[in-house]
Design a protein around this nucleic acid. Structure first.
Ligand SMILES: [Mn+2]
Ligand SMILES: [Mn+2]
Ligand SMILES: [Zn+2]
Ligand SMILES: [Zn+2]
Lengths: 157, 157
DNA sequence: CTGTTTAATGAAAACCATTTTCATTAAATA
DNA sequence: TATTTAATGAAAATGGTTTTCATTAAACAG
């Protein structure tokens, strides 16, 4: 059931086929969850959201699909330090500008912030250029994250 | 054998005792390796360097001691994305200014850089303050890292 | 629509860094 | 030197992720 979205057939089908990947029910379900659900889902989170409507999709397929999506650049993979990877669609198909993360080390609440993004991006760009030249690195990505205790966890102390 | 170091007894003994921790042969060996060896050692790296002269020290003790050191703020713990934690003395007892990391995702070569540290620190400080106020977070640490392919890995392609 | 090719899949087992358990050892202190 | 109890090693457990392998089903040609 190739739904339309106001602008042609399901946006990722083309890219998938272009990379030689097949369109399967499991993959449709996984992408569906990533597009609708909240962000920063672990593989297990995705599994739990996919499973009710698709009991046939196993956790292994979740992992395999997420890896493909990360390699294709459609999904970001993050490590917030709690021992499990988190995934987030690069483009929420709408809003969702580039942002960085603020992580509560107590409850793992994660806040997307964009407040200082522009300055950060600018500095990052400069730094990247300088480092590339000086060390001959081909820089492909960066991480900026802040860790601390969220307001909720501070109260319940 | 409490060696001297130009300025009193082994520098960390006091802090250790102050925290109620005992000074043991294993811990002396581990600190010794951290002080002498190159940086960014994994727990296993430390084990391999400690073992020859101290076959009695097990990997478990390496992990336990490193955790204590991290909690005491004497050692930094890093995750460069290869599935194992890396440890680095906060103060190499000499030089070693605050620095950030450039990581090759192919060979895991890690470069400490300080080129843009001042600007980065400044921006980080501003951002931290802004985020603290806006989101009520008590921020305790940050991560900035660049990932890419080092010059060596680019050639051997 | 049907048959063929082979990527995709699920279940179970394997992986592997790190943590936990528990009986034993030894640092600190009186 | 005796006492207390933190520290320790070996082995088992943990837990997220990956691999294995036999089975299923997209994709596509006819
Ligand atoms: Mn986010
Ligand atoms: Mn370093
Ligand atoms: Zn919290
Ligand atoms: Zn490299």
């Amino acid at each position: 059931m190739p739904r339309r979205d106001g602008a042609g057939p399901v946006w990722w089908h083309g890219r998938f086929r272009g990379c030689g990947y097949r369109i399967t029910a499991g993959r449709e379900a996984i992408l569906g969850v990533l597009m609708i659900a909240e962000k920063h889902l672990s593989a297990e989170d995705v599994y739990n959201k996919v499973h009710p409507a698709n009991p046939a999709v196993g956790l292994t397929t979740i992992y395999r699909t997420l890896e493909i999506l990360v390699n294709m650049g459609l999904v970001f993979k993050f490590d917030f330090g709690d021992g499990r990877a988190r995934y987030e669609l690069v483009e929420g198909s709408k809003k969702s500008h580039h942002h960085h993360h603020l992580v509560c080390t107590k409850c793992m609440r994660i806040i997307d912030y964009t407040e200082f993004i522009n300055e950060e991006i600018e500095l990052l760009k400069t730094t990247e250029k300088g480092l590339s030249k000086k060390y001959g690195f081909d820089i492909t990505s960066h991480i900026i994250q802040f860790y601390g205790i969220c307001s909720v966890c501070q109260k319940g102390n």
